[in-house]
Design a protein around this nucleic acid. Structure first.
Length: 327
DNA sequence: GGCAAAAACCGCCAAG
DNA sequence: ACCTTGGCGGTTTTTG
């Protein structure tokens, strides 16, 4: 079943972006910017990116996009990206569905950006899979594909080989996450820095669903989050965070849900895992030392949380991304 | 990977 | 009347 780990960092990754007439150019541009822009000395080996259309001489702006490959190239790629459709209910060509299915069966990673999720679903790949799309269409996606586990509150969701993202700019977050999985946090953060975007945005779509009530600067969690990140290693608890902002734990819990769409402890655990990832890549501390440094009580706690977030063990992660690994 | 204990979560509701 | 807060306690998640 799982084929994709072989040579994960050794071979160049081929990325195919599906192009349909009428697709928003920005949505196509997002994966191009992340994967196709050359970043010598950073992303090595570079991705090999092709744009694939059903009909290479189609009447849309191929002079803007450059040369186009066919869907056979897409079916052979290691990562297949389907940008937002021209409209959410736009029909998906059978040729694209067939190519996507063929790629998936080969073990390729299938990615749907924004309403591209509808195409992934149409290929039958979202059944039982955590997924998302633009919040305006999440309900429709769930209605049309009842077996997809649609979560309108996240920026992106999925498994190792099927991922979908929320609207427009969330596609950037997902593409950078893919770089993170292929090349590690350090490289992904550098790519994000060069693009001048946040290496990892917290909170999902929840923060965009409802406009912030005005005049509530004192409600912002920002200082609490800053303080928490500062004191990660001190073994802080949710009660401690509540104390810093002078609210009850109950109210803190509400703020987290409103502003980040998560709970204090799971946010805290995410931060600790994230820091642990960095230390695994950049330091030579043992797993136990890292656990202590990021504020976990024990190494086994780190392992459990690490597995939940990254879906690997700390050791496996380190061998995959450590600077001494094959290069 | 499972277990018992601890921590955290969240619906409910009274109070400000 | 309406909104926010925070305590209670049953349930879920985390921890070691």
């Amino acid at each position: 079943m799982t084929i994709c780990t072989a040579g994960r960092t050794a071979d160049p990754r081929t990325v195919a972006v599906a192009v349909l007439p009428g697709m928003p150019l920005f949505e196509i541009a997002v994966p191009m910017e992340v994967f196709a822009a050359p970043r010598p000395g950073l992303v090595e080996p570079p991705y090999e990116v092709s744009l694939c259309a059903e009909n290479a001489t189609a009447d849309f702006a191929s002079f803007v996009l450059g040369s186009l490959d066919g869907f056979d190239t897409l079916a052979a790629a290691q990562t297949v990206i389907i940008p937002a459709l021209p409209s959410w209910d736009h029909s998906v060509p059978d040729a694209l569905i067939d190519a996507v299915r063929a790629a998936h069966e080969r073990g390729a990673r299938i990615v749907g950006l924004c309403t591209g999720a509808f195409a992934v679903a149409a290929a039958g790949l979202l059944d039982g899979i955590a997924s998302t799309t633009h919040w305006m269409y999440a309900h429709e996606l769930a209605a049309r594909h009842p077996r997809a586990l649609v979560d309108p509150n996240v920026l992106y969701a999925g498994t190792a080989d099927v991922m979908t993202s929320a609207g427009t700019a969330a596609g950037l977050d997902l593409c950078i996450e893919l770089v993170r999985r292929d090349h590690g946090s350090a490289v992904a953060n550098d790519v994000a820095r060069r693009m001048v975007v946040a290496p990892h945005r917290e909170g999902g779509q929840a923060q965009f669903l409802r406009p912030q009530p005005v005049g509530v600067a004192d409600r912002s969690l920002a200082p609490a989050l800053d303080w928490a990140i500062e004191h990660l290693g001190d073994g802080i608890s949710t009660d401690d965070i509540a104390a810093v902002v002078h609210v009850s734990p109950r109210t803190l819990s509400r703020r987290f849900k409103e502003q980040l769409g998560t709970t204090p402890s799971s946010w805290l655990n995410d931060q600790r895992v994230r820091k642990a990832q960095e230390l695994l890549e950049k330091s030579t501390f043992t797993v136990a030392e890292i656990a202590a440094t990021v504020g976990f009580e024990s190494a086994s706690t780190l392992r459990a949380q690490f597995h939940r977030v990254v879906e690997t063990s700390p050791r496996a992660y380190r061998t995959l991304f450590a600077p001494t690994s094959p290069h």
